[in-house]
Design a protein around this nucleic acid. Structure first.
Lengths: 199, 199, 199, 199
DNA sequence: AATGAATGAGGATTCATTCAT
DNA sequence: AATGAATGAATCCTCATTCAT
């Protein structure tokens, strides 16, 4: 016996289906994935997509927001870890793993105006910065590194894999290890340019 | 009255104009830059573009080929340098600098079928591998690194900058330095996964 | 707990709310006013509108019917006035005033098939014809004018205002006066074409 | 042997075909006539319409402009007539005749921002005002009438016909005669409202 | 070889209407 | 009776590509 609650449950399910379908389509076809294809993949009518997301851009913002939120959760959890250096490496590992399945990095380019996305991005940046500071106090990473640097480099291991002819699903771990080795405090080269501002 | 020779000269010039205009447009607007805008920027008619490049994809392949060729030239020149470690760093620096001006990375996604582009990419990969080997023989970089690894990581300094809210034009130098620090042989962490195959 | 009676009362109220909201929306946005906006303005769900009016066209027909009914009431009241000429002018004045607030003229274009609207229109035409005849018997207006003529010209004062760059709300009175001056019997020009048939 | 000139001639012809088709479609279906239908009627592809008119609104502006230009030509020609009163009547006659075939009055509603249309409208208004002044100096029409009044009333004879169940193509002449009788100077009623401003 | 007009498939979005709850 | 989610046809417009000149 379906209640009003059930109806809402159906709509919620459609929303999830759409987000999932959109992620897959965007991953496969990039930003030009069509709303029609997303709807088809989700098994709903084209119009339904606009009930849930007023605009294609809104849909993208929702996806990006979801990922940022997930990354924030990861980072906050790691903030209480006992070994700050390991925690930072763990953050980068989980981040890359989260991103690896759906490389939505390019989606960010469109969400530059969405205040919700921007707020989440700032929050993630702040949490990462806190983690970086802790790791530096523990002398686990080089002292000239900033949270902004880590934020910028966070996705590069996954991205590096994209330039390979036959990307294997695990190679990002290799590139993360190399980059993290660049974070070591011992024998670090003096950096040629000052750290970029965040805001 | 233009002679056959002159006409050919004009056509060649148009080709160059179109390639230059296309690079600028793609840099500014990404893959969605329109053929019409490129033609307008080059100062030729829309139809002319298709006389030179059968397809928008062909045009992109031509651009990407040009950049690969430039990178190959750089790499080959550095092959004869006396300090192989410095040469490798120099390669990555010049590559990033070359890319920074016209980020054509996204263009690669489309050229996966173009045999000319693939051949050039293979050639670049081979030259980089030779440089890497020399640097390893000189013990300038860690021995577990492969040419494929360097190829994959080559663009990441530039890409990292794209994730910053206010990208400053020089920040890639900072990220290249950090990543290159990860190439140091001393105290390198054992890499968790094997190097990916190239072909 | 609403009883059957209460529910019916609610439904009636909803119908009125919808009609009022629809008039406002149509006035503001023309025929393209959306059913969704009307529902929102009325404070009911979109589905409810279709319980009351099977079709958007039906809703429009209901509005037009209401206005025709109002005009009929005005005309019938004036049928008993002592000065038939003044009564005719009064009819045109009240009509224009009624129309001015909600220009529903454009709505008529759609209701050409609705028998209820057509019947009301015929009734209004008949009443106007009676008023015209009385005015002619009193020699207040030119004898070659027909009820059909007056019906046709009835809305023109309001419409004339629409062609002005800055319409002022009272200008229709000016145009009604001018047109009504064309109704004067003295010195009337012979009309070049016969009066149109009504049905 | 077709030259560049011929090609241009073809394009010009398509432009005319499109304008004609658009007028017919708009006349039949109102502002909601679809671009696709217009293209089909003109016998060209949908895309062609946008080569000639960047926007549906632009197309409408072109139509309205054409009509305003025609009316201006009529008015200017009549400015030199010997009998100014007859000239004014003639203007209204030719205007109505011009408009009768394609009632594009409603199209004006959309062109409120198009400076070209606005300029033509102002020019027409000015010319009409000149004609009115001349007619008043000749005591052919009432002295309290303005060019703005005539502009506003210009289309009403045609519009009146639209409210008839079976509009006959000539009835507008009847309504023009009636309205023009309202312009007579003798026995004119004092107008209840001041003449509206133009700009 | 160059031009630019024409083509038509494809894209995002809107909206009247239907339907499950 | 009311709700609001889902539908899918229709709309304006864009753009790579073709073609007549």
């Amino acid at each position: 016996m379906p209640t009003g609650r059930n109806q809402r449950a159906d709509a919620t399910r459609n929303r999830e289906l759409l987000l999932a379908a959109a992620e897959e389509e965007f991953t496969e076809k990039g930003l030009d994935a069509s709303v029609a294809d997303i709807a088809r993949r989700a098994g709903v009518a084209k119009g339904t997509i606009f009930r849930h997301f007023a605009t294609k851009e809104d849909l993208i913002a929702a996806i990006v927001s979801g990922h940022f939120a997930a990354l924030i959760a990861i980072a906050e959890r790691l903030l209480t870890a006992s070994d700050p250096g390991a925690a930072l490496l763990q953050l980068l590992t989980e981040t890359a793993d989260n991103i690896r399945q759906n490389d939505l990095l390019f989606l960010q380019s469109i969400t530059g105006n969405d205040s919700r996305v921007l707020a989440l991005r700032d929050e993630l940046h702040a949490t990462i910065t806190a983690l970086v500071t802790k790791a530096q106090e523990a002398k686990a990473i080089r002292p000239d590194l900033t949270g902004t640097d880590v934020f910028a480099l966070m996705c590069t291991p996954v991205h590096a894999v994209d330039f390979l002819p036959n990307p294997s699903p695990d190679s990002w771990k290799r590139y993360l290890a190399i980059i993290f080795d660049g974070f070591r405090p011992e024998g670090a080269t003096a950096l040629p340019v000052a750290a970029p501002d965040w805001g």
